[in-house]
Nucleic acid binder design. Structure first.
Lengths: 246, 246
DNA sequence: CGTCGCGGTACGATAATCGCACGTAACGAG
DNA sequence: CTCGTTACGTGCGATTATCGTACCGCGACG
């Protein structure tokens, strides 16, 4: 059904920087003709998912009900939330469970501490896989060829002076992740931000998600992350995995 | 565009209790023909928004990207998050900003403390308006007739022995909310849970959202909520409102 | 062994979708 | 100030994808 596919494509077009888009804006962003975009936006407005101010359109909160349909029923986010909350309390840092969606990591559950951080992330947030601990764990769980292909498809930018963007180097890192069964991100996404992640394997051993702990670099050294945080993180990931049917 | 509307309807059909639905299940839940549902689900699967296990279908995390398109760009959640985080740190309790979507309240931003609560709620969560402090503030901001109509349309169940479900009583409560400019929910949603909410008014004075503080009844009395929490809540709501264009 | 409900398929009728062309508004150069 | 240019949203007939009914095979259940 092309209309459904196009409508969803239109919704996603709003994920960019601008919040108010004209029909022509969406047309450019999606590659759909202006007439198609117009019909989509009119339909979305009729259904209450979007609203218009003269020539510009914007999404409405009702859009959240679509994601809620997933969050409220999918086994992974439901099982993950209490585990993360408990882990976050114990460690005193923010924790996340994410899954891979083509080159990006999608946060499906999160427990954050109250400390204000410059990156404001929550459930539904999307980050490119190549430069996050979560993403590298998830990429490492794929067959080498698939991981390489996923990396090659993505546009890789250096967010900080530590960010690794070169393909061979990234593949070597994935090998390391496979060997140690964890990934450590040291300020590659943002200066002052460190994260460590491990895979979440279900009862038959398939990696279905990844779990991380992220913290300000000033509060936790690389060493502390590996020696103190990693064991607790592994235990939590294992506990979650045991609850997940194949 | 009927296909788009039907597809979104299908997605929302998953919001119920069961997570895995057959074509016939969705057909019953939506009132759409099985053939239509089949085409919708096949399209969603093709696009990666759903997956199938033989006869049953389930949503995939990619669905979250639709809600993220709103969260990442809409002014309200963006402006609300830091205000809530700050308020939550000061009060030491969970805080929320929500908006009205036909008889239900949709959470668009939230800052929670680490304490585990029986109700696990996050951004995107939906609760019926009649039995929450947020909902009553939002209903009170509507013209009386519209509020009464919205209340009458909803099916009202008593979640606890304190829940008010009678229409005349609810309308009287809304009057009270209008008079005092805040709503207090004392264990009507769940035993042991109290919440207080105030409207968030934008720069031209229109109520565009509501903000609440919710806490375990054992930690905060009604009196403390009104005398200690309410002033801080009002200040935060005002600060947020000042950032919101008409 | 019959019945029921399920998912899949086929196909003519129909209604939704397409893409072009039009009118309009904003803008800049002359 | 005016005219040419550009980009926008919109309307409309032709077209095509979509609809829903009917039917088939299958498995579960009584």
């Amino acid at each position: 059904m092309t209309s459904l596919a196009r409508g969803l494509h239109v919704i996603r077009a709003f994920a960019g920087v601008d919040r108010r888009l004209t029909i022509a804006d969406v047309s450019r962003a999606t590659g759909l003709t202006r007439a198609v975009v117009r019909r989509c936006l009119y339909t979305l407005r009729e259904l209450g998912y979007a609203a218009s101010d003269g020539r510009t359109f914007r999404l409405q909160p009702r859009i959240l009900s679509l994601g809620y349909a997933y969050l409220a029923t999918a086994p992974l986010p439901i099982a993950a939330q209490p585990v993360l909350t408990e882990l976050s309390e114990r460690i005193g840092e923010a924790t996340t469970v994410g899954v891979l969606d083509e080159g990006t990591v999608v946060y499906v559950a999160r427990a954050s501490t109250q400390r204000i951080m410059s990156v404001t992330l929550g459930v539904g947030s999307r980050l490119q896989a190549y430069c996050t601990a979560l993403g590298r764990v998830l990429l490492a769980s794929l067959p080498s060829a698939a991981a390489a292909a996923a990396l090659a498809r993505e546009e890789r930018v250096a967010h900080t002076r530590f960010t690794v963007t070169a393909l061979p180097q990234l593949l070597a890192i994935l090998e390391e992740v496979r060997a140690h069964d964890y990934a450590l991100n040291d300020q590659e996404l943002e200066i002052g931000l460190r994260a460590i992640a491990v895979p979440v394997r279900n009862v038959v051993g398939a990696t279905v998600a990844a779990m991380n702990v992220s913290a300000q670099a000033s509060r936790l050294s690389r060493r502390e992350l590996i020696e103190t945080v990693l064991p607790a993180l592994r235990a939590a990931a294992e506990r979650l995995g045991a609850e997940l049917a194949p």
